[in-house]
């Protein structure tokens, strides 16, 4: 059942897309991650032009974060004030990101930058997670080390109180975090949860209970902004593709959550780390291996 994607302008097997959605949905249900960092490279692997993959993925992230945030909202696990500050930074960051994206697209380097960004981020995060999970195998009980040292961070001006997070910190900090994550959403088509969550815990010092909810809350708005800007500047959001991935993703996530309940936390983290490293490895290999043809046409992806 081939389906013609009107924006990507390619014909792809519909079941393959549903299957990809289900696979990534399963992963995100299993590991509790957004899955954008897996989906965007997978879409590129199956031949979707990378600008379309990135922009469409941003649209899909809107949907998955809405569905995720509602559960946290009901349990009052969203720090709205912090979320709004992060969103403000995120709006500026994603707007700048789109500008960079368009520029890179015009000079023919967007494909390279997307792949490089993935290799670097996935490689570093995968390694960190792997080290962390191997360590926790040896030391069973270990509380996450919250930020406790007094550093330059505490000397930043414009302090603001975040009641829900029980924090009194400079507003510049969450603004900066929001800005960087917003840029990543625009350029890489990821939700940024894998950067945002560690940054919230270790850099901002937020309590773990509100981290996921607040992160999802702000991702909705930032990825919606990216969807809008991509639609307006590059016309690369493919609604048909987004819908197919979404349907698969919803079903896959249900099975993922159930499977996740049967596995132990550190086992899960080790698995996720291996998976992240595998994706990074494949992307890195493609960058280094001599291409079949050194010449390519604009709009084509890699090989």
């Amino acid at each position: 059942m081939d389906i013609y994607l009107p924006i990507a302008e390619i014909s792809v097997n519909g079941f393959l897309l549903l299957g990809l959605g289900a696979l990534v949905g399963f992963m995100s249900g299993l590991f509790g991650v957004g899955g954008g960092f897996l989906m965007t490279p997978l879409l590129i692997f199956i031949g979707v032009p990378s600008p379309v993959a990135v922009a469409t993925q941003a649209n899909q992230i809107v949907a998955s974060s809405v569905s995720g945030v509602l559960a946290h909202w009901r349990r009052d696990n969203v720090d709205v004030k912090m979320g709004v500050v992060l969103v403000s930074g995120g709006f500026v960051g994603s707007t700048v990101g789109i500008w960079i994206f368009t520029l890179l697209n015009n000079i023919g380097q967007i494909d390279l930058v997307i792949r490089l960004a993935f290799v670097i981020f996935l490689g570093v995060i995968g390694l960190l997670m792997l080290i962390e999970s191997i360590r926790s195998h040896f030391r069973k009980s270990r509380a996450p080390a919250a930020r406790d040292r007094r550093t330059w961070i505490d000397r930043l001006p414009l302090k603001m109180r975040f009641r829900r997070s029980r924090l009194y910190i400079s507003v510049l900090l969450p603004l900066g975090v929001g800005f960087i994550v917003g840029m990543l959403v625009a350029v890489m088509g990821v939700g940024g949860g894998f950067i945002m969550v560690p940054a919230m815990i270790y850099l901002l010092g937020m309590p773990t209970s509100v981290v996921i909810g607040t992160s999802l809350f702000q991702i909705i708005f930032v990825s919606a902004n990216v969807t809008m800007l991509q639609s307006m500047t590059n016309q690369t959001v493919d609604l048909v593709l987004a819908m197919l991935l979404l349907v698969g993703g919803v079903i896959g996530a249900q099975f993922g959550v159930r499977a996740g309940a049967r596995l132990k936390g550190d086992q899960l983290r080790t698995l996720l780390a291996v998976l992240v490293l595998a994706v990074a490895g494949k992307l890195a290999y493609d960058l280094v291996v001599t291409p079949d043809d050194l010449y390519s046409l604009s709009g084509m992806t890699g090989k």
């Binding site: 899909q60 974060s65 809405v66 569905s67 919606a224 969807t227 959001v237 609604l239």
Partner: peptide, 19 residues
């Protein structure tokens, strides 16, 4: 712009339904 807005609305509704 309308397409972008539609994409966002569709995504929000889809996410809500999924929830």
């Amino acid at each position: 712009p309308a397409y972008g807005l539609l994409a966002i609305v569709v995504a929000v509704v889809a996410g809500w339904l999924a929830n």
